[in-house]
Design a protein around this nucleic acid. Structure first.
Length: 921
RNA sequence: GCCGGAGUGGCGGAAUGGCAGACGCGCCGGACUCAAAAUCCGGUCCUCGCAAGAGGGUGUGGGUUCAACUCCCACCUCCGGCACCA
């Protein structure tokens, strides 16, 4: 077999690795450990695309390199196998999703083995395995059994939740309800996008203008009982623990923005004791009066702001204020206040109106009779809009006046309360104070409805154009500045003002510092069949109706398997979960004389991927999700590689679960993934996305058939930096194949029938030049692998072959070193060459080559000579030449001398070994 | 709109503030061949020049420096994320 024939050598070595279990990881690491993890794939029916091997090759190189470095390496692979495609296929063809899934997994497994990745296949798992998802269900039970203690900032067993006396007094049902309200897993009646024509619930992104994105069918918002996970409880820790992670800053930032922590204050505005404050409770509007702040510039004065309340209302406000000061800031405000959240308490004096969300519980109470019809119509219209509609229409602000007023605690002035859908019920308190002079949205709204704009922050003399625009009421000024029109606080800089007024109002019992997050609780249930069933039972009464009591199964009751006998209805036409149609012997459970119905929602696909990295460590354990000692020894994951599309969801969900498991003692590290590397996308040859519809998908099977797995691996690493988005090139693969051909010829005699070394490969000591190339290559490749710069590592190896192919004597020892360097990236050809060089066993555990710095040193160096920063010549010198010698040699150079002639050398800069620069005049 | 990232030959890309374009693709020329493929050798940033050489050149404009792809300021374009979060 003289020529390089990947089709023959690759399967041979794959077989060798498998039968000898070459890459089996030990139960516990011996010495230094490295856990290298890929984001496991969803085994789709299309098989692998060329994007998959990019990350898998990168981690494989790292894994193989570290084995040669003496590390115990954990490098597993599995399948994220639940998901909608298999279920949709079932609806179309009647094939059970499990059958489809197993077929797809078999194909993926074949393809990955074909690429020669050094996975420990003994640890393979699929999220759809009953033995796997029983532990997913187990973790759900842990979540269900946990509450978050805000004092200790950690999850604790629900049994440790202190029950307030007044709750305990109401009996067992009240206690159970109290506990349910604190669990990390809880039920919520939440609106979903239901599309009757498609027979499915749609995500917000799939609904455009009230119609389904696909097909354009009507979508209705219907309330549906859902399971939620209280990820918001961990928002603070999920954000602050990012600091210690070796992740790309851009990904950390994405997560920070997603969590969206903001600090500010909650402030209570007085809205009247028995009834809302209306028009009749205010003194008439008096233009020019200081308490009747006139709208600035020429805006229409349709609704007065900053009006003085009638003495009776003022008295009620004073009384309320005094009572508040004595009682402090209550946890749940009474009906007499409207609580708002603001990040700019320093702009309280500029609040000219208030806005509450259409879903705010105070809407009915605050609506004056004369505004009732308008408010009702507005709220109804808002409820029909999907979230997407509401954001889409962001440009045109809409709203309606309630007819009621609130009293600003800082100055006792009454300002109107509006309803508008630019305020979201799900954020903060669902109500805001509007400061149009210093908030863009409030500014637009005020413009739309002719509400007054009162500047209270001066941008300062350097404010320039922004200041002019603000004072002419042409734009809001968002940034910090100095307070104006703000009573005693006037003159204060923004940051100081914020602190002072928050403290002052807190002392008065009407405000407190507050933190808010954009992050929402995680909607954790799906109306699908092909997902993990919840380990929960709903109690039924004698009539077979749910009593509302939920019973969690015991760990010993697990797993809850999916019913094997299911028929899949192509025209499933209700929002109820498919499992509602499961056989009765699955659906109903008798226990202790009571009847129960199983929870028929299933978990989302994210569930299985939240903890698979733990199960890989101990995949066959029947007693625990992972053995404690094993987990402590291997975790955390040292390198996690995958696509940037998982920057927020998967990577946030997994961190959340991990923290809960950490709090409850199941794992020993607070974070699962110490180092993260994101992959760029691989595009088509013409720089466009690959896709079936474009017909530009490159199938790894074809590439391997044509050039072999090593060429595919090497090419994907040679394309460019891992994180970069880069286009595929068939010529590029051929080019890398050419390199392997040349490397083969460098060592093997192609003309011989049997496996013979090239006659140039001889047992002789390397020349100084050969040593320089060899050791320089070892050094560079080592450094590049450590920094995951595989493209330059390969370039260095190409230089090595380019050099040695010209050498008529190729020292065997140098060839061996080279083969070892090549091995992590192109393992099949490396094994074959290793054998050709007379080595018996696999090179997978051969020590990584060391380099000798002293052999790299050149005897002579070429020093570039610059005159005024421009290259004017070069001079060859002994490597040890000192600065004076370099300068002398440079001046002696004929061309340089010409450039220096007649000029004065002002300065001479010598960078030893680098260059010399003459600055002349 | 806001927040990130990136702009270097025909293409993918390389360069601790120190010779811009390593390595590969493509292209051009040559060797071998009846011929082609494969392989090997040489060339390949642009302009002027027979050449030696000179000038220009890392999205645009400015700045710091003996020296800038690299650092600073402003702008342009492309890609990604978020999108009324008060």
């Amino acid at each position: 077999m003289p020529r390089y024939l990947p089709a023959e050598i690759e399967p041979k070595w794959q077989q060798h690795w498998e039968t000898n279990r070459v890459f089996a990881a030990p139960r516990l690491p011996k010495g230094k450990k490295l856990y290298v993890l890929d984001m496991f794939p969803y085994p789709s029916g299309d098989g692998l695309h060329v994007g998959h091997p990019e990350g898998y090759t990168a981690t494989d190189i790292v894994a193989r390199y570290h084995r040669m470095r003496g590390y115990s390496v954990m490098h597993p692979m599995g399948w994220d196998a639940f998901g909608l495609p298999a279920e949709q296929h079932a609806k179309k063809t009647g094939a059970h999703p499990r059958a489809t899934t197993e077929k797809n997994i078999a194909n993926f497994r074949r393809q990955l083995k074909m690429l020669g990745f050094s996975y420990d296949w003994q640890r393979e798992l699929a999220t759809t395995d009953v033995d796997y998802f029983r532990w997913t269900q187990f973790i759900f039970l842990v979540l269900y059994d946990t509450w978050f203690d805000p004092q200790q900032q950690r999850g604790r067993p629900i049994a440790e939740l202190a029950i307030p006396a007044e709750v305990a007094a109401q009996g067992g049902a009240a206690v159970a309800r109290f506990r349910d309200e604190h669990r990390l897993a809880y039920q919520l009646e939440a609106p979903v996008n239901w599309c009757p024509a498609l027979g499915t619930v749609l995500a917000n992104e799939e609904v455009v203008g009230g119609l389904s994105e696909r097909g354009g069918h009507p979508v209705v918002r219907i309330p549906l009982r859902q399971w939620m996970l209280r990820i918001t409880a961990y928002a603070d820790r999920l954000e602050s623990d990012l600091d210690g992670l070796d992740w790309p800053e851009s990904i950390k930032l994405l997560q920070r923005n997603w969590i969206g922590r903001s600090t500010g204050a909650e402030v209570d505005f007085f809205i009247g004791v028995d009834r809302p404050i209306g028009e009749a409770d205010l003194l008439p509007h008096q233009p020019g009066h200081p308490d009747s702040a006139a709208p600035a510039s020429g805006l229409p004065d349709t609704v007065a702001a900053g009006r003085r309340p009638q003495p009776a209302v003022r008295a009620a406000f004073e009384q309320w204020s005094a009572a508040r000061k004595a009682a402090g800031y209550p946890k749940r405000p009474g009906g007499e206040v409207l609580r708002i959240y603001t990040t700019r308490p320093d702009t309280l004096f500029g609040a000219t109106y208030m806005v509450i969300a259409p879903e705010h519980p105070f809407v009915p109470r605050l609506t004056a009779p004369e505004q009732a019809a308008a408010v009702k119509a507005y709220c109804q219209a808002a409820s029909r809009k999907s979230d997407l509609d509401r954001t889409d229409l962001a440009k045109d602000k809409t709203g309606v006046f309630t007819g009621s007023y609130a009293v600003n605690p800082v100055n006792g002035q009454a300002i109107p309360i509006w309803v508008a859908d630019y305020v979201l019920i799900s954020y903060g308190t669902g109500a805001i104070m509007a400061v149009p002079a210093h908030d863009t949205r409030d500014f637009e709204f005020a413009r739309e409805f002719g509400l007054p704009i009162v500047p209270v922050v001066d941008p300062g003399p350097s404010g320039g154009e922004a200041r002019e625009k603000l004072l002419r009421c042409e734009a809001a000024f968002i940034a910090d500045g100095q307070a104006i029109n703000s009573g005693d606080y006037t003159g204060m800089p923004t940051a100081q003002f914020k602190q002072r007024i928050t403290a002052d109002l807190a002392g008065a019992g009407v405000a407190r510092a507050a933190v808010n997050y954009k992050l929402r609780d995680w909607l954790f249930s799906r109306q699908h069949f092909w997902g993990e069933p919840f380990p929960l039972l709903h109690e039924l009464d004698a009539a077979g109706q749910p009593t509302g009591v939920v019973v969690a199964l015991e760990p010993g009751d697990l797993p809850v398997d999916l019913p094997a006998a299911m028929t899949f209805d192509a025209r499933h036409d209700s929002p109820e979960p498919p499992l509602e149609k499961a056989p009765a012997d699955w659906l109903f459970v008798e226990r202790n004389g009571k009847r129960y119905k199983r929870e028929t929602n299933t978990m989302p696909q994210w569930a299985g991927s939240c903890w698979y990295y733990l199960r890989f460590l101990d995949p066959k354990n029947t007693q625990a999700l992972v053995d404690r000692e094993v987990e402590r020894a291997w975790m955390p994951v040292d390198l996690y590689v995958g696509g940037a599309e998982h920057a927020v969801l998967h990577l946030l969900y997994a961190r959340f679960w991990h923290k809960v498991l950490y709090d409850r003692g199941y794992v020993g590290t607070p974070e699962p993934f110490q180092r993260l590397v994101n992959l760029g996308m691989i595009l088509g040859e013409k720089n466009e996305k690959m896709g079936k519809s474009r017909g530009n998908v490159v199938n790894p099977d074809d590439v391997v058939r044509r050039h072999g797995a090593d060429s595919l691996r090497l090419y994907e690493m040679f394309m460019g930096p891992l994180e970069a988005t880069k286009p595929w090139s068939a010529d590029g693969v051929a080019g890398v194949r050419g390199f392997l051909d040349r490397a083969w010829r460098m060592i093997v005699d192609e003309r011989s029938e049997s496996m013979q070394l090239n006659e140039a490969v001889v047992d002789c000591p390397p020349t100084a030049a050969q040593n320089r190339v060899l050791h320089r290559t070892i050094k560079a490749v080592t450094k590049d692998i450590e920094s995951l710069s595989f493209n330059t590592a390969i370039a260095r190896m190409m230089e090595f072959t380019n050099f040695f192919l010209r050498e008529s004597q190729r020292p065997r020892r140098a060839m061996e070193r080279f083969v070892l360097l090549l091995a992590p990236m192109a393992p099949h050809i490396a094994e074959e060459l290793w054998a050709a060089l007379g080595r018996r066993q696999t090179l997978a555990y051969e020590p990584w080559p060391e380099y000798d710095e002293s052999l790299i040193k050149e005897e002579t160096i070429e020093v570039p000579i610059q005159v005024n920063g421009k290259l004017r010549g070069k001079v060859s010198l002994p490597a040890e030449a000192d600065n004076a010698a370099i300068e002398a040699a440079a001046k002696a150079d004929a061309r340089v001398a010409e450039w220096l002639a007649g000029k004065t050398v002002v300065k001479t800069i010598v960078v030893p070994g680098r260059l010399i620069n003459f600055v002349v005049k």
